[in-house]
Every structure is written in C-alpha cells, then in structure tokens.
C-alpha cells in the first residue's frame, strides 16, 4: 500500500482553484520531487500534505500506518527567525515534541535521540551555538535533524537549497540521497530540475493544464520536461 495516495485532489488558495484533478502516489522508499512554476500550487500542496489545509475535492489518504503527524517537515527559509534566541540543541530537541504527548519536559531518551541525530548530521559540535548565527547550510542541517526526530519515515522538504551556495547545495543533496537509500521516504519541492533528475525516483510536475506524475525516466522523455528546462516545445501529455 502507498504511504500517501492523492486521488483527484482539488486545492484552492484564497478562493481561487490552483490545482485540480491531481493524482499521485508515494510509496515507501520513494524520492519524489515536486516541481512547477511560481503560482502552480506547490506551497498549497505542501500545506495539504501536512494537513494544515483541507482539500476542496478528492482525497489524500495515508497508508501503511502512517499518521498525519508523522511527516517530518523542513520549511522554506524565510528569514522569519532572524532574531530568535534559540540554541541548536533546543531547536533539534523540539522535533521530539510530538512523541511527548502531554508530558512536560524532555526525557534523557529524547536527549539521546537528539544527540545521535545531531552526530549523524555533523552538527553535534554546534549544539550550544545560537541558531541565528549559523550559516545557511548549517541551518538546514539543524532543521533536517529536527525533522528527522519528528519522524523516521517520511520527510517533506520545501525548497531546501534556496539561498545555499553550490558546494553546500551538493553536500545537502548527497545527504538527502543517503538518507533516502537508508529507507527514508523523501518528498522535495524544488526549482532545481537537474538535481531532481539526478536524485529523484519520481517527479510530479505541477502544471496549469494537467500535472505530470511518473518516474524520473518517463519524465525525462516527456516534452514538458524539456520545456521546463528551456525548450520551446508544447507539452505532450
């Protein structure tokens, strides 16, 4: 059974329909890239997948015992936390919150989990540092670590490399790819089409007329991919 199954999903944003007739599935272990122009409904879809927004038609179902709250989320960097005093350790640890229920404080087990996650991502040395003083790449690792503490199954990345330099971007892609090989299901919203073709297993191209969903292989053959890369051809499907 699919982890996430979207059937005939209709989504609107401020009373305007942005997506209609959207069908796709995410299987466990997939690496799905969601691409599309600005305004094609990527962010709206992200909100719907995170259950922050209800669908206006169709359905999004979670399978394989995946709970709605088991999606690790790495939000888009928007500079909103520029002046927030928080240490790296505090930020990472907050990823364990959904496992605490109503119990206050964190247990030593939570702290151990946070430690091993930070060590895995190479940020344990930064734990006492202030989050706002990190570089862009370090910040993404911290947020990734937090997301991985919230879930070990599915992670949703919203334009994770925007604002990162090419070296850090490559490192970040490699890291995600490794995690994916170890069994983590990845959904990534991105503008970086060459990277998605390199690492992803599936592509969802949101398009005003008809969205494309298929494997990376099918997508690279599809004309609308070429169009998105820069060709002049009309969309084929």
């Amino acid at each position: 059974m699919a982890l996430i199954k979207c059937e005939n999903v209709k989504l609107s944003y401020e009373n305007k329909v942005v997506l209609e007739g959207l069908d796709f599935e995410v299987q466990s272990g997939d690496y799905l890239c969601i691409i599309g122009e600005n305004g094609s409904g990527k962010s709206t879809l992200v909100k719907a997948l995170l259950s922050l927004k209800s669908v206006d038609g169709g359905s999004i179902t979670f399978g394989d015992g995946l709970k709605k709250t088991e999606i690790g989320y790495l939000p888009q960097q928007d500079g909103a936390r520029k002046d927030f005093p928080a240490s790296v350790g505090e930020v990472v640890l907050s990823g364990r919150l959904n496992k605490r229920g109503l119990r206050p404080f964190y247990s030593s087990e939570d702290k151990k989990a946070a430690r091993s996650s930070m060590e895995q991502l190479g940020i344990w040395e930064l734990r006492k540092k202030c989050f706002r003083e990190l570089s862009g790449g370090q910040m993404q690792r911290v947020l990734l670590s937090r997301a991985l503490l919230a879930t070990s199954r599915l992670i949703l990345l919203d334009e994770p490399v925007s604002g990162l330099d090419p070296v850090v971007t490559n490192e970040f892609y490699k890291l995600i790819s490794e995690l994916n090989k170890n069994g983590l299901t990845v959904i990534m919203v991105t503008h970086d089409i060459s990277a998605s073709l390199k690492y992803a297993s599936h592509v969802l191209h949101l398009h005003s007329e008809k969205p494309f969903f298929g494997t990376k292989h099918d997508y690279s053959k599809c004309e609308c991919c070429k169009e998105f890369i820069g060709g002049e051809e009309k969309c084929c499907h």
Binding site: L50, T69, A86, S94, N98
Partner: peptide
C-alpha cells in the same frame, strides 16, 4: 508556563512545523 514550556517554545519558534508534526 513551566509545565507547557517545551510546547510554548515549539509554538513560538516555528508554528508551522509544530502544527505539521501534531502539536
């Protein structure tokens, strides 16, 4: 405040993430 300190931190730092992961 003390009992809900961890939750209040999460909600203050990143409300969207907190909501998405079930807080």
């Amino acid at each position: 405040y003390v009992v809900f300190y961890t939750k209040l931190f999460a909600v203050t730092f990143d409300e969207t993430f907190a909501k998405a992961t079930g807080t």
